[in-house]
Amino acid sequence: MNTSLKRLTLLALPAALLVGATASAQAQEWTPIKSIEFIAPANPGGGWDTLVRTMSRVIQQEGLADQNFAAINVPGGGGAVAWAQVARDTGNPHKMFAASPPLILVPLAGASRYDHTDFTPIARVITDYSIILVDADSEYQSLGDLFDALKENPNLSVGGGSAPGSMDHISMAGVAAAAGLDAASVNYIPFSGGGDAMTNLMGGHVEAVITGAGESVGQLGEGSQLRALGVSAPERLGGGLADVPTYQEQGIDYTFDIWRGVVGTPDMPEEAVAYYEELFAEMLETDGWQQARDQLGWIDAYQDSEAFSAFLDEQQEEFSSVLSDLGLLRQ
């Protein structure tokens, strides 16, 4: 599929040239001289892949760059295969990948030799939040009800869409700890995805589920079989989730970001980073992006390279303390 994508890209190249480029207005600035390999470190269909394809499409449709962003899937090892590939390509200004918390969690669990410090963070782009769901007929009306029940009976199962020690588990452990529970005592049941977890919740096979808010939007609202107890955002979300209270509103001081951003090769030249930072910031302003973003339930959360690097360092610190509480730290 890689080759066919590249072929598509080559076909689309002249078109992109004709459209012209706003970003190359100043001649002395660095601009890419060939197609950019924009890697989704997973199979088609997931969060990384959707981000890569949506960004590539918007940049091309809005004529923001004079070179094409070619979406490429490099699946394997929860991202580790792609990271190993990019890490070998020091200084290449035409290669980057989509990243999210696994870039930090997978290395902490000992499953990747490379972590975010080996790469050049370019920009954080969007964020999603965790959401805690129960069955619509459930007796739990608030997070307090759920956590009280968990305190009494730690065996109650909480399903999530990712492996132990990955996003959903960390997020659940974090909020449980903030609510006064022992993070390691939560009976977290990993499912193969948020959809799988929600199906099991509807069937009454687990008590509650934690998953991405964006992924759950379609399941909530009128006639829904599920009820949302809280989101991990600092303030209420819009759209179909406007009725869902935050953790903080319910007296639990905890937030969790499922951020997504773009990270480049090791030691990517500064002028290239500056070019991409600006390009992505510009992309966020376009109508095409805003439309796609709203449909996918994403929230803009732009940070430039410097802020994003600092943010990633903070995240690493926070996650490693949660992981060590859970006994899953393997560094």
Partner: peptide
């Protein structure tokens, strides 16, 4: 799977 992902755009 790959074919459908290519068709999304």
């Amino acid at each position: 799977i790959s074919a459908l992902a290519l068709m999304i755009p």
